[in-house]
Design a protein around this nucleic acid. Structure first.
Lengths: 160, 160
DNA sequence: GTGAATTCGTTCGTTACCTAACAAATATCG
DNA sequence: CGATATTTGTTAGGTAACGAACGAATTCAC
């Protein structure tokens, strides 16, 4: 796309746009691919992550799950109620703290989980093969650093 | 970050998850930051891209705009009608082909555009400073290659 | 030149993300 | 103890993305 002459300072914006643009495209392509694997089972990508957590780490407080998956309370609330409606997850008030909701798989939920393919393995393997460990590490480092900056920026901006 | 022992096959999943996970987090952090810049003006990120196109390249057929911005017809349709509702954009049937819609800025839309900051410049500059050109290029290359793979995978899967 | 295929935009249903505002429960401080 | 703050989850409203199905316009084939 952007062929590579000596990058002038004018290229900065182009580069920036590229990382952002490609992060977006990769995110959505990845999501679409995962969803195509999961579609026959009637669950979405983020719903899968919730089931994954509950299946592997057992009952979890909704608040903690939100932090683990980097989701806002409101977002998780909707996803959980979808899973509850479908009968895969049960949501019970916490024993000591009545505000909290403890989530755990229902029997049906566990059964579903056991029949589920692992979309990360299926999709991830195809999408990243032939990319060296070093390149992967660089990509992650860049994405991580940039995300960090943005979060700092937002935190600052809020306080001002 | 990811220190580099001989990568066992168990690392594969971890790495894959990381690129996907970080692409997602960067995408949303970026979007949130851009939206915070644009919020006072009452427009969203993708709406800004539409205005950008119309301001710089003049009237455009909706179909072409979709390809430029990598958006499906259905997605763009909603975004355009939001901009039309707000009075920034006008959507007129094509002269030669009555199926097509030609989009152009209204007078109010152009005025808005002229008072708008450039969120890509503002946000991109902060988020990617101190990252070398080489690293940026690698990140883009990885994201691009992975996206390519996923698109191929989806195309194959559809035909099967 | 007419019937079939294609293209373009819209609408509908779904997923997933956010903020803001709110209610209930719990914690903290005077 | 009791008023005030904080935490947890939900709801409502907004943005953005997708696929499927549809109608209208156009193009293609024969």
């Amino acid at each position: 796309m952007v062929n590579s002459p000596a990058p002038s300072s004018n290229d900065v914006k182009t580069h920036h746009e590229s990382v952002g643009a490609w992060a977006k495209r990769y995110y959505f392509a990845n999501r679409a691919a995962i969803e195509s694997v999961l579609r026959p089972y009637g669950i979405g990508t983020t719903q899968w992550y919730v089931l994954y957590q509950l299946a592997n780490d057992g009952p979890t407080i909704q608040r903690d799950l939100g932090q683990l998956l980097h989701l806002e309370r409101a977002t998780l609330s909707g996803i959980v109620s979808t899973l509850v409606r479908k009968g895969h997850v049960e949501q019970v008030p916490g024993a000591t703290d009545q505000r909290q909701r403890v989530l755990h798989l229902t029997k049906a939920g566990r059964k579903l989980w056991e029949g589920l393919p692992d979309p990360i393995a299926v999709i991830g393997a195809t999408s990243l093969q032939d990319i060296s460990e070093a390149e992967l590490a660089t990509a992650v480092r860049v994405l991580k650093a940039a995300t960090q900056r943005l979060n700092d920026y937002m935190a600052d901006g809020d306080r001002t």
